[in-house]
Simulated assay, not measured.
Amino acid sequence: MPAAATINCLIVDDQQTIRSLVRSGLQELGFKNIHEAPDGEEGLRQMLTRQVGLVISDFNMPKLDGLGLLRAVRAHPPIQKTAFIMLTGRADKDLVQRAVQFGVNNYLVKPFTVAVLREKIEAVFGALQ
């Protein structure tokens, strides 16, 4: 059961408002090390240069979408074990199944509450301190 403050997070979303909402929720849960990227390409670049323990990525983004980012992460041994939560505006069964097939740890449907965010993260890491 890790302390939220010890987990480095990366929020990947092309909408600044969503990144801000996720950041605010993570801070409320006790996360301290939170980074942001506006698309999957930048997210992947950041993951290759800094240690990230949790990625919360939107599905629908320009350049490299969330599924592409997930596939790239799972294909690269140094980062392939990184916890990955897909953020989506729709609970599309096909999308969820494809994300599961590529190794997503959990998914979060927008809009969400901080309680649901905690639940999704704790399903991956266990109870947060």
Rank of each mutant, 00 (worst) to 15 (best):
M1D: 15
A5Y: 15
I7P: 05
I7C: 12
N8D: 14
V12E: 07
D14C: 01
Q16K: 10
Q16C: 07
I18N: 00
L21H: 07
S24K: 12
L26E: 05
L26G: 01
Q27K: 12
Q27C: 09
E28Y: 06
E28S: 04
L29T: 08
L29Y: 11
L29W: 04
L29R: 01
N33L: 10
N33I: 02
I34D: 08
I34C: 01
I34Q: 03
D39N: 08
E41T: 06
Q46L: 08
M47F: 00
L48H: 07
L48G: 09
R50Q: 04
R50E: 03
Q51P: 02
Q51V: 00
L54R: 00
V55Y: 02
I56F: 04
I56A: 00
I56N: 00
F59R: 05
P62D: 03
D65I: 15
G66V: 08
G66R: 06
L69G: 13
L69E: 14
L70Q: 09
L70C: 14
R71E: 15
V73K: 12
V73Y: 14
A75F: 14
I79A: 03
Q80V: 13
Q80W: 13
K81T: 11
K81Q: 13
T82R: 04
T82C: 08
F84H: 02
I85G: 01
T88L: 07
T88Y: 10
G89D: 13
G89H: 08
R90T: 14
A91M: 10
D92C: 02
K93A: 07
K93D: 11
K93I: 10
D94V: 09
D94F: 10
L95M: 15
R98I: 12
A99Y: 03
A99K: 04
A99Q: 04
V100W: 14
Q101G: 06
G103N: 10
N105T: 01
N106R: 01
K110H: 09
K110L: 12
K110C: 15
T113A: 12
A115H: 04
R118P: 15
R118I: 05
K120Y: 12
V124Y: 05
V124H: 11
